[in-house]
């Protein structure tokens, strides 16, 4: 086996190995990240949450709205009648595999928080003075009825645990997608790049000639 074919062989092996490594490394990484996202949540939150959630759940007055409808509003399955964006855009509340947004505060326990609970009303939400929500919802008001449903939903969610932010998982899956696209590119265009890499026409001449020459 001459040096050239050796090099090509190794190059191919290296490429294949790298691809396999990425694919095989990715799956555990994602799984690990998912575990990370799920696992620490109870550990961290268990003690304080257990104490806080229990009394509130008891003390909470029955909400007028339906938690299921509230969830739909929160997730955006059902749009607010005036066209405001769904809460999940910026807030998390323990729903969805990858959680909600993190531009705004986490609302899982908002119902249980006595200082914040009273703020869940259409007046506060539609108030222009709140930082990011203000301009959005002051132009596209949420209605009382919608907030009622949301309140019911939050009451429901406050019984659960605060899920860990899954930013890492999100980024890793994104990276995985990127690597996947690269691999697809590589498969589609491998011949193309190899053609180019055979070098200039002059190199090809020297190769045919059998000499090293050229440069």
């Amino acid at each position: 086996m001459d040096l050239k074919s050796c090099k090509r062989f190794f190059g191919k092996g290296l490429q294949l190995g790298l691809g396999l490594l990425l694919v095989s490394g990715l799956a555990p990484a994602v799984a690990f990240a998912a575990d990370q996202a799920a696992a620490p949540a109870p550990a961290v939150q268990a003690a304080p949450a257990a104490g806080a959630a229990a009394p509130v759940a008891e003390a909470a007055p029955a909400e007028k709205g339906s938690a299921a409808v509230g969830k739909m509003y929160f997730m955006g399955a059902k749009r607010f009648s005036n066209g405001g964006p769904p809460c999940i855009s910026c807030h998390s509340a323990g729903v969805g595999e990858l959680g909600g947004g993190i531009l705004g505060p986490n609302l899982t326990k908002v119902y249980a928080d006595e200082s914040k609970n009273p703020l869940i009303n259409s007046v506060w939400i539609n108030n222009p003075s709140t930082p990011v929500m203000g301009p959005v919802f002051s132009n596209r008001n949420v209605t009382d009825e919608e907030v009622d449903n949301l309140r019911a939903f939050f009451a429901e969610q406050a019984k659960g645990e605060v899920a860990a932010s899954s930013t890492g998982t999100f980024a890793i899956i994104g990276l995985g997608g990127f690597v996947g696209i690269l691999i697809v590119f590589n498969i589609i265009w491998s011949g193309r790049y190899r053609n180019r890499n055979k070098g200039t026409a002059h190199d090809a001449l020297w190769r045919n000639y059998g000499g090293k020459g050229g440069r």
Binding site: G76, A77, P86, S89, V95, G174, L175, G180, I181
Partner: peptide
């Protein structure tokens, strides 16, 4: 984006393209 799975698909596609 109303359904979380669709939201995630959109976001992950966009993120992958961003990394690309």
């Amino acid at each position: 984006n109303g359904v979380p799975v669709r939201l995630y698909i959109l976001e992950l596609t966009a993120l992958s393209a961003g990394f690309l």
